[in-house]
Each structure stands twice: as C-alpha cells, then as structure tokens.
Design a protein around this nucleic acid. Sequence first.
DNA 1: CCTACATTCGTAAACGTTTACGGAGTGCGT
DNA 2: ACGCACTCCGTAAACGTTTACGAATGTAGG
Lengths: 347, 347
Amino acid sequence: MTGIRQLAEHLDISIGTVSRALNGKPDVNEETRRRVLAAAEELGYVANQSGRSLRQGETKVIGLMIESSKETVENADNFFLGVTSGLQSVFARHKLDLVMLPCPSDEDPHEYLKRMVARRIVDAMIISDTQRVDRRIDFLSRAKIPFVALGRSLSAGNFPWIDLDFEGVADHAVERLIARGHRRIAITAPSSEANLGYLFVGSYRRALERHDIAFDPALVIRVKSSEQGGYQAAHELLQLEERPTAVILIYELMAIGLYRRLMESGILPGRDLAVIGFRDAPRARFLQPSLSCFRISLYDLGVDLGRMLLANMPAYRDFYPDSGRDIIWPLELVPGESDAFDVGAIV
Amino acid sequence: MTGIRQLAEHLDISIGTVSRALNGKPDVNEETRRRVLAAAEELGYVANQSGRSLRQGETKVIGLMIESSKETVENADNFFLGVTSGLQSVFARHKLDLVMLPCPSDEDPHEYLKRMVARRIVDAMIISDTQRVDRRIDFLSRAKIPFVALGRSLSAGNFPWIDLDFEGVADHAVERLIARGHRRIAITAPSSEANLGYLFVGSYRRALERHDIAFDPALVIRVKSSEQGGYQAAHELLQLEERPTAVILIYELMAIGLYRRLMESGILPGRDLAVIGFRDAPRARFLQPSLSCFRISLYDLGVDLGRMLLANMPAYRDFYPDSGRDIIWPLELVPGESDAFDVGAIV
DNA sequence: CCTACATTCGTAAACGTTTACGGAGTGCGT
DNA sequence: ACGCACTCCGTAAACGTTTACGAATGTAGG
C-alpha cells in the first residue's frame, strides 16, 4: 500500500510538504499542492488512520453503541438505522466517520463501553437504552469522553441528552380523546418501573384529572413494549368488566398485536375502540385501519443528536455555538383512522 | 490516561518487559507478569489501539458493512443484528472486535468501502447485499484485504461467500405442495433481474416440470420483497383468471401484507390458499394462521461466516483448517398452519 | 575455572503521520 | 550592501506500542 513516503518520493519532495499539502495547510505553494493532490489521487493514497491517530491523539471516528438485546431483535424497528443517516449527514461535514458498536448480549454494556473507549477506537460516543442509573454515564463523564445519550437518566448530574417527549404525547393523546367524548381511556406502560413509563403514565393521569376523570389503576396495562405485548394488552383490555373506549400505546409496534387480538374478538379498531400509538416503527405504517400515531423524523433526531455531540467536543464546538442541550423531542401527531370516531356520536 | 510508560514507571521496570508481560510472551518471569497484570488492572491500563495498530500493521477490528437503504429500513428485520451475535462469538476468542459500518445512502458503497479500508479502520470486511457485478469484490480481491460476502456474485473469479439455498428452498417447497395435491403454484420473485430471483424461479420451474406441470409465467409474481410487496402480490394473485391454490414467498415478511390482502377478500391462508415463506424475519413469527416457513438460525450463520473469514486471514488460518468455502446455506422448514391442507382432500 | 546454555530483562528501532522550527530563496526598501 | 519580511519547504521529533537484539545473571557440566 502506498504511504506518504512513497508519495513524497514519487513527487521528489519531502513528506512534510506532502502532509501539509494534503491537509490544506497555508504554507504550501498552490502549484505543489495541486501536484500532490493529483499524485495522491493517481496512486490511490489515503492516510493511514493509525499513524494519524497516534500523532494527533484522535481517531475521527464516532461510535454509536447499540445493544443487541433480544427485545431489540424481536421488535426489529431499525430505529438506529434511521438515526444514523441523520448523524452521518452532520459528521460528514467534518470528515468524521460513524461506526456502530454492537454490544454482545453476553457482555456487560459498561465493560464493553470501557473497552472500546480505552482502546481509543472512537473519539466520542453516542449511547442509547439508558438506564435509570447508568454506570456508563458516570464513566464517560469522569473520563471526560465526549458523549450524548439517547434517553434520560438519573445518573451523573449534568450530561447532554435527547429524549422523546413522553409527557407531551400522553397529554396530547388524552386531550384529543376526551375532546371526542371518551371518558374511559386505557394506557399501556412497560412492566418495569422504568423512567419513561413513569413520565408517560404520570402525564396521562394529570391530563385525566384536569378533566375531573378519576384515575383508575386498572386501566394502566403493564406489558412488554412489543408486538406480543400489544396482543396481551388487548387480551387484558377485553377482560375488564367495564371496557374502555380508547387505548394509548406507548409503542407503535404494539398496535400490530393489539389489532390482531381485537379482530379475533370481532372488535374493529377505529370503530369499536380508539387506538393511538407513539414513536416510530416503520412496520406499523401499513396497518388497516391506519393508526393514529405520534411519529418522529428519525433523520432529524439524528441530526440534532450529532450536533449536540459535536457541540461538546472542543474541536468542533465553534461550529455549533447555539446547539441546545437536554432536548425533549416533540412528536407530531399523524392522524389515522384508528381514533376517528366520536364516542358522543355513538352514545 | 495511563499509557504503558506510566505503568512501567510505576512498577520500576522497562516498558519492553511490561509489553511482553501483557501480551503473554514467554520470556518474562511469572512473578513479574503477575505484578504487571495486577498493576494494569489497578491503574485501568488498556493498550492504545493506534499505537499498537501502527506497530503491527493490524487493527484487530473486523468491519461489517451494511447499507441503510430505504428497503432495509422499511423491512426492518434486524437480519444483521442476528448475524452479529454469531460473528462476535467467534471473534471474541481472538480478541477481535466487530464494528458495523453503515454506508450512507447518498454515498457510493464502493467508495465508502475503499475509504474504510484505506484508512485501515478494519483488518477485514464482511460485505452483504452483493450485486451481480460488484466492484467491491474486485477491489477487495485486488487489494488483498481478507473478506467474505453474504451473498453470491458473478464478480471476481474466486472469493469466499455464504448464500442462502434459494434453489433448495424452491425445490423443497414445490415438492411439498405437489405432494399435497397442488398443481397450480405461484411464486414471488424480485422485480429486478437479480441473481437470487433467477435461481429461485429456475429451481421452481425445474421442480414443476419434473412432475409434468407446465411452467406458467403468469404465476411468477414480480413484486418488491417487502410487506407492501406481499400485499400487492396477493392483489395480483386475485386478478388471475385461474386462481392458484398455493404461493411460495421469497421473503417471509411479505406474508404480512399478503395475509392482509387475502383477508380483505375473505380468503383464509391455510384453508383457501397455501402459503410457504422463506428466510427469517422475526416479525412474521406471530402471524395467524402460523406461517409455514424455511427458517435460518442467524446466529449459526454468523458463526460460519466468522469462521470462514478467519480462515482467510493468515494470522488465524490455522485455527480453522477445515472451514468450508462458498457455503450454500441450507434452510429448515418450520411447518405451520398456512399450508396445512391437502388440495386432494378438497377436490 | 571455563564454557555453554537458559532465563529474564533493558535498549532502541520501527510503524506512518503531523507539526514546530528553522533555513533557503526572493523581493524590496534603505 | 544590508536588513527585513515573506513564501515555501526540509528536518526531525513526537505520538504509544511491539519486538529483534543483546546484555546480565544464574546454573550446570566439563
């Protein structure tokens, strides 16, 4: 493979000049720069990243850590692929590359992260699936590795993150349903006492009480946020003595299972039960009746995530002076047929 | 951050000895090795990968290139995540790490690959989504970069690959359906003249003719291999003057859309039309009636892919002496309800 | 006591790049 | 003729690690 040395010999100039020419340094004759660039193209020279990293102490690579948990694989919503395109559009401007780091399911995410960072494979990290207390966040903070998190956490006082607006969605959904005459509204939440479930249900409760509707714990269906979870949620809904007229799903994908279970009992979403979904899962886009759903532009989310990260890296800070922090990502309601009916009209 | 120099000073021995101790070289006293390892653990020392890579000319990182095409995102089957776990189980034994390299959709995959390789971010590559003529394969072959491909190609005479047994599946499916009395069997194929479609349909045709059933081009439904494609396939099936009694899907995911379209017309899969799927798509696992389908263990596929790659790398070749090449991956039929009826019994 | 050998360790070069520093050449004003 | 500023380029050190080589020590055999 051709290194900078071969390139310099071929051009009969010193490697220092070649390097400066390639890196756009000012103290090099424009004519020589032209020759160097031409020769580099001709010989197919690309700088060896190891040498460069060693010298300047940075790799120009950003890592996106993902966990290949069973749940991720089963849900299969390609959430991350959607985000990467937005991330890359930002990184490309600075010649940064993005790699996805899949943490093996049998390895502790914290250890995996430490290894990747210590080996200096990446300069900065994007982490996701944040836990309520997340050792990764403490580690990255202390080690002063630039990072952003996709998801809130209670760990480490102050770090940049973006999270979805669970509270806004629940509030909006309840308001919308109430406006259509619904009084008995169910909601799904993760079985664990996760942060996001707390926010989601809390906001739902406040919205109900604002309209003098008593909060009924029986209407909070705790199931897994997956297609099967949706199936089970429908099953539990049908068991209730006083059946709700509407249900809010914390994860769009659940609608697939929910629809199926409902249809099995001859209940048609959008006619017999209003359904509103949340989050973005491409596979749920083609349901019938179409799902009313709060959607995200994963691309835009990736862009903001990338900007926020760079704003936290000294070398790029100046490019993103007014980049926000701790963004609560708003979602847009895409109306469908699944909540199209007014209860008032029926009663 | 602590480097090998700090570690050596702390122990009051030379950095050469520290390095040898850490790397398990024989010419170091066991007592000193113990001390070094203890100190490394205590100080949290991890070798800087840039320095190491530079010296030994290898990065100990394997790249899995994925394309975030629109189709991938929409299909959302997490095929790659499933494969990575198998890959990592092999790589972990040799302290190799796996990174996923998502090629931006606006960049030429060939250029992207060249960049990643030239920058020496990875030692070896796993590529997928191979095209009939694929410049990446020619490039990697010429540059002598170890690689394996997930998918066949007509490029570059001789390279290691694994591909799914399209021919075996089509053959098996046809035989199975004929044994149950079906004579009019439809099949789906990609709209493009892709390699795999050619193999799939070709084998289907030969199996039919083996049983003296004339090949009817009208029964080859050319649609996209996606959920929507399945919907459209069903639609086209219903238009046919003489409706088939069975259909073979080239991609399991299509079953979701197909089912929906069929149900809309009151046709029940497994009772009115036999359906057999192919490939592994977790989201299709929960269909009702359950889908008869040729499934893969993505984990096992990953394991073999990893082994095949290492067998092509000088440093690891000896560990995998009898690793096969050019594997046509066999699939196992997981019977379901969707093809459970005998046409003979009805007629 | 000398030689031969094994064990253990230190020394220094090398990997490919970037960059601080200084030198050579030129032009210009005094 | 001299000094100065400016442009352009070469030199060499540095990044953190591995490893070939040889030095030092100990041990055993003659």
